[in-house]
């Protein structure tokens, strides 16, 4: 069965390109355009991994991350945080709020791919 990845990102072009890339890599990809929609889809479908943009309108990425961590069902779901801010403060915030790793825009798609592979492998190891 294909592993499910959810992209929560308000910039349609970015989510579209990530999706094309990940589909080529053999994942089942769905997209949410806002924080609320993303949270809803995460809790409903329990994807294997979430790619989350930090800067979202209304419900911010960090809030979404906290909510995902709160729910027992999804608390172990790997989260990759996308951010445009390069400062150290934001990296720390990424740790504090509980993302598994972060990537600064613009990033290498290959790097994103290998991070995803790594995280999914770790998850499987934890479960077995």
């Amino acid at each position: 069965m294909k592993e499910q990845i959810l992209i929560i990102e308000d910039e349609a072009d970015i989510s579209k390109t990530i999706r094309y890339f990940l589909e080529e890599e053999g994942y089942d990809v769905s997209i949410a355009g806002s924080g609320e929609e993303g949270l809803e889809k995460t809790l409903l479908h329990n994807p294997d991994l979430v790619i989350l943009d930090l800067k979202l309108p209304e419900l911010q990425g960090e809030e979404v991350c906290k909510e995902i961590r709160k729910d027992k069902k999804t608390s172990g779901t790997p989260i990759i945080m996308l951010t445009a801010k390069d400062s150290d403060v934001d990296r720390v915030v990424g740790r504090v709020i509980g993302a598994d790793c972060y990537m600064t825009k613009p990033f290498e798609l290959d790097e994103l791919g290998s991070r995803i592979k790594e995280l999914l492998a770790n998850k499987k190891a934890d479960h077995s």
């Binding site: 910039e11 072009d13 970015i14 390109t17 990530i18 890339f21 445009a84 825009k105 613009p106 990033f107 798609l109």
Partner: peptide, 8 residues
């Protein structure tokens, strides 16, 4: 943001 889309 646009740079990310272009690069991807």
């Amino acid at each position: 943001t646009p740079l990310t889309s272009i690069k991807n």
